[in-house]
Design a protein around this nucleic acid. Structure first.
Lengths: 198, 198
DNA sequence: TCAATGTCATACAGACTGTTCAGTAACTGT
DNA sequence: ACAGTTACTGAACAGTCTGTATGACATTGA
């Protein structure tokens, strides 16, 4: 007995309505009734599933993260050697499919709680990967992997934010990844147009 | 006829109360009455100054940005040549003084609106500086300055966020700046411990 | 088909919002 | 120090949203 179809229907509708409405009006401005109305569901039903709208947002985000995690797993395995850009590319693709949700999360809607869930999950995974990779290749990090992971994630998310907020059909994902890789390899100084330092 | 002392007193008290309370309970959880109570001010007075709590938060953030801008000006002038790290250092110092406010802004409290004010201001200024610098030194950026600025700011803010959230007396600001500079110059690959690529 | 379970409409108390207002206190410029 | 201006106070108001409870009804899965 998997999950009642009615339950699934309601939950999905509520989640979708939330995303739409947050994008339109912002999280705080929303009423539970706004959400149920858009989802075409009774208000009482909402409370049968979620404690409040924050709870709903948190679950939607958690689902997104779980999905992302699954999609990232093979890409991470593939880039065991070094910076291949495969995980980033996969994330960009995921973001293209779930664009609206990515937008509102990255904007910090909901007092930044979903965003923090997102950042923390990415940072944790990245730091772990950095450590493992350093060990595997027998190199000693010149900067604390924890901090390095934060920087790397911060940089990726900044780009991601920029990317999903573009209105015009923007740069293809592959192109964005190439830039990020260049930056990671050669540094910002090079990217600015200067010759690499001594 | 500057500004009435009572006005200044009330505004300041309300701003300070907001910061304290957001740090304790989060922005959404707050009531206007919570704020006025902490500030020891009548609720009616609040509405004499601000439309709602979002308005208050926005103004507090705007003031912070103005202050930061003033402090950054000389540092930016000093680093006209290249990446000296002076502006970042100055920002870290500012963040140390206004730690609580920085924390809540960077957390994305208030549906991320103050955070967006912050990010946009930094990104705009940085992009402009990049362009000017490239022109001054007659070099051609290898990556769109707009995007490069986003990345650079995203990276700085990730570090800043990490730094202001540390409980223990953390790394000195100068040390953090050194790391950021190394990263900017030599890239992440180097920081991970690998030798620079061909 | 039937028992279980989700959904619905409605109702409720309690809390918060944003506004108004008359009385009181504090401030500024002279 | 005074007078006129201006801000603060406390109280009251309707309107909105929340979270919970209820019994009737519809859909589901076995």
């Amino acid at each position: 007995m998997a999950e009642d179809r009615r339950t699934r229907r309601s939950r999905r509708a509520l989640g979708a309505a939330l995303v739409e409405l947050v994008l339109e009006r912002g999280f705080t401005a929303l009423t539970v009734e706004d959400i149920t109305e858009r989802a075409d569901v009774a208000r009482a039903t909402f409370y049968a599933h979620f404690r409040d709208k924050e709870d709903l947002f948190a679950r939607v985000t958690a689902d997104l993260l779980a999905e992302l995690g699954e999609r990232l797993a093979p890409a991470v395995a593939d880039s065991a050697v070094g910076f291949t850009g495969k995980p980033v590319l996969e994330m960009l693709r995921h973001a293209r499919e779930e664009r609206d949700l990515y937008r509102i999360v990255l904007r910090g809607e909901g007092d930044g709680k979903p965003l923090r869930m997102f950042v923390d999950a990415c940072a944790r995974a990245t730091a772990e990967e950095f450590r493992a990779r350093a060990e595997r290749n027998a190199v000693k990090p010149r900067i604390d992997p924890e901090l390095l992971a934060r920087v790397w994630v911060g940089e990726q998310l900044a780009v991601l934010r920029w990317w999903v907020e573009q209105d015009a059909p923007s740069l293809p994902a592959e192109e964005v990844v190439r830039m990020l890789l260049d930056l990671a390899m050669r540094g910002r100084y090079w990217a600015s147009g200067f010759e690499p330092p001594a």
